[in-house]
Design a protein around this nucleic acid. Sequence first.
DNA 1: TGAATTAATCGTATATTTGCGATAAACTAA
DNA 2: TTAGTTTATCGCAAATATACGATTAATTCA
Lengths: 122, 122
Amino acid sequence: MKRTLLAVEYSGEEEAIAVFAKALSHPVRIKILQLLASQQCCFTGELTELIPMAQSTISQHLKALLEAGLIQGEINPPKVRYCINQENWVKAHSFFTGYFAPDRVFGCDCPISDGAQEDMCR
Amino acid sequence: MKRTLLAVEYSGEEEAIAVFAKALSHPVRIKILQLLASQQCCFTGELTELIPMAQSTISQHLKALLEAGLIQGEINPPKVRYCINQENWVKAHSFFTGYFAPDRVFGCDCPISDGAQEDMCR
DNA sequence: TGAATTAATCGTATATTTGCGATAAACTAA
DNA sequence: TTAGTTTATCGCAAATATACGATTAATTCA
């Protein structure tokens, strides 16, 4: 597709949040993370039994989570055990918590249909 | 694409998080939300001036944010003012905060290369 | 009425994502 | 060595997402 000559500039944090968010943007990946997080310790491909999807598809989603840094895997042939990447888990927590901090948007509330307060707003 | 006959079941929260995350999965939408949130009150299509992208593209991204419920718009012809949807902003905050709660993953840490503790891990 | 302004939508091209089955790769156990 | 187990990767098809310019729609102002 066509792209602008002037690329949009993003801060490191903007991009980092987008990467985490993209990893979370599919419900099955949300579920996979839940399953991994709920394990006392780690986990392997029992995911394939718990989720009615082709093994190759699940492997693909695991790869996406891996690349986003949200999980890590330990090769233990012929199995692979995956678990949450705690470091980035914490990072994601602080990113999202900071991003959605309620006080950031205090006072921001468009009346859905009125328009009589143009001066109040900026 | 082909789909499984047995659809994967997702909880309401799993789907809700995925919807929010998808909205955040493009850096320009992260930026747009930042810009809207940083306004004392509301905002309009000055976004077009602040972001080097075609007006139609930005409009498209705004639509995505609107559909995810993260922003709301007030039609004020010929302008439209957008702002953060506070209710869902708070909801997103608690979803992500809860999801990434650090204690959820306490003790989950695969040694990246070892494999000698199969029994420790389920 | 006729510009001018602003934003949404349409049409289109390209890129990416998602899903599957089939196959390959890596290793263990017999 | 051979068979079995587990997971990754390949190849493909279909669906979505992304970006743009052009056009349309809604409204104000002259």
